[in-house]
Design a binder for these strands. Sequence first.
DNA 1: CTGCATGCAAACCGTTTGCATCCCC
DNA 2: GGGGATGCAAACGGTTTGCATGCAG
Lengths: 136, 136
Amino acid sequence: MNAPDPMIRITTQRQILLEELGKTKNHPTACELYDMVRKRLPRIGLGTVYRNLELMADTGIILKLEVGGSQKRFDAEIEPHYHIRCCRCGKVENIEVDIIQDIVQSAAKKTSYDIIGHHVEFSGECPDCQDGSSKI
Amino acid sequence: MNAPDPMIRITTQRQILLEELGKTKNHPTACELYDMVRKRLPRIGLGTVYRNLELMADTGIILKLEVGGSQKRFDAEIEPHYHIRCCRCGKVENIEVDIIQDIVQSAAKKTSYDIIGHHVEFSGECPDCQDGSSKI
DNA sequence: CTGCATGCAAACCGTTTGCATCCCC
DNA sequence: GGGGATGCAAACGGTTTGCATGCAG
């Protein structure tokens, strides 16, 4: 888990998956990526998308977000950062907040867990949804 | 969302659901609760469990946790607190960390979202899983 | 030639929903 | 008697998996 196998073959599918993931600022779900990739690789299967996302997340090439909601989301940005999720439309965006090392430290002291990670997620209404607030 | 309807009938099913949820220190999934409740109410349906958990979460009687993992988890403790999830066995426990108001403040400044909540989740290996570490 | 990667489809799991029945007010 | 609550089972959405085929090394 700390030293994942860094060597996987970069097949056409994986390459394009990476490119599409890298080109969006969003944090797409597997299905959204499937749709994006399918424009360039019409015969790709959903299973391949899931398999490769999972694989690339395991190898640390991409990040599998541990955010709320019922779908998994992926991110080409693997540097630590936090997220904010719109509670109306479900969109997930990055939010710049200083990493809270002291919180992690104090958490580590209070538990007998071997802490390997943390994540912070804010939720709220995004500007778009605030506009159309009373509708829908 | 801020003023949820506080008045729902406390039926037998809801009462027992609440009792069972309150008596565990874990953060059970709907299925786990279903199993617990079924010992006292053998004919209860899974649908009822889901419907009532959802309803009670909406009314603010209980908390629906926004943690990672593929299943929703529920909590009778509605005061704000944070969680730590074992990355091996998936167990979720409470962790006592001071609420980080300043982080929330600074987050609010950096985004045009109307922030209504946040949650922090640590992940790591729980003591039990550390013991049996190399097994499984 | 060999084995990993793929496409496809069926299986799976957690959750939601429609509906007939039941029970409480 | 009427309206919400329940049990049941079928439907659903997202994800995983088994398998035959394809392709790169």
